[in-house]
Design a protein around this nucleic acid. Structure first.
Lengths: 128, 128
DNA sequence: TGCGTAATTGACTTTTACGTAAGTGTCATG
DNA sequence: CATGACACTTACGTAAAAGTCAATTACGCA
C-alpha cells in the first residue's frame, strides 16, 4: 500500500480534474495532508474518492455523499447518537433499494426493447 | 384506463411541480395534446413521466433520459438503424450494470456500518 | 542557476434543472 | 358577477458542480 499519491496521479486514476479534487476538499469530503502547500493524498483519501465516484454514478448529490461518508466514520460513542445513526443508515438503505427497483425495471424494459429490435431484424432476414 | 389527466393531477401523483412538467415538454420528453392552450396528458405521457422519474432517481441527466426514452419508441425499420439501436441499448445496459455494482458495494458498506453500530450498542448494554 | 513541469490560489464562467414572479385567461360556484 | 382554483406564457433567478484562466510558487535536475 502506497503512502502518498499526488493530485495528478489521482486525477488520472479516476479521470477527474484537479479542480474537482480541490472542490471536494473545500466541501470537506477529503482531507489530504500538506507538505508545504502541496496536497498529499493518503490511501484513505483515495478510498474516499472511490466512494465519492460511486455515489456520483448513483446520482447522489454532494450533500448526500457527505452524509453517506460520515456514516463510515467510526461509530459514535453515545447511545442516542448510535440509534440516530442506525436510523440514518436505514434511510439510505431504503433509498438504495428504491434505486435497485428502478434499475431492474429499466433493465427489463431495455431487454424488451432489444428483443423487439432483434425480432425486427429477423423479419428482415438478418442473422444476428 | 383514463383518457386524459390534468397537469395538477400529475404533479400530485408524482410529487413534482407544473414547472417541471412544462420543462419536460420544452425538452421534448413528453408531448401532451392541447385543448385550447390547456395541456391534456394521456396515459402514454403518464407512463413517460414514470420513466423520467425512474431515470432521475438513478441519476441520469435529462439528455440521458431522452436517449433511454427514444429507445422505447418503436424500433426503426432500417437494418443499419436497428443495429445502431441495439448497440445503444447495450451501452445503456452496461451503464446500468455499473450502477448495480456501485449500488451493491454501497449497500454492503452500509451493512457493515450498521453492524458496527449494533455491536457498539451491545457493548454499551443496550438491547436492540 | 536557469528552466520546465507540477502545483497552488482565486476569480470568473458555464451547464443543468428547475424555481419564482408577473401578468392573464378560463370556468365553475356561491 | 365576484371569487377561487387552475391554467397559461415569458422572463429572469439560482444552486450545485464543476470548467477555465491567470498569476504565482516550488521542485528537481541538467
Amino acid at each position: 500500500m502506497r503512502e502518498y499519491y499526488s493530485i495528478t496521479e489521482l486525477t488520472r486514476e479516476f479521470d477527474i480534474s484537479t479542480r474537482t479534487l480541490r472542490f471536494y476538499e473545500d466541501e470537506g469530503l477529503i482531507q489530504p495532508v500538506r507538505r508545504g502547500r502541496t496536497r498529499l493524498f493518503r490511501p484513505t483519501d483515495r478510498h474516499l474518492i472511490r466512494q465519492i465516484m460511486r455515489g456520483k454514478r448513483l446520482g447522489f448529490s454532494i450533500n448526500e455523499i457527505r452524509e453517506i461518508i460520515q456514516i463510515y466514520k467510526e461509530p459514535p460513542g453515545e447511545v442516542g447518537q448510535l440509534k440516530l445513526m442506525i436510523k440514518r443508515i436505514e434511510e439510505k438503505r431504503d433509498d438504495l433499494r428504491q434505486k435497485r427497483r428502478d434499475l431492474e425495471e429499466t433493465l427489463a424494459e431495455l431487454d424488451q426493447a432489444e428483443e423487439s429490435c432483434v425480432e425486427r431484424l429477423a423479419e428482415l432476414g438478418v442473422n444476428t
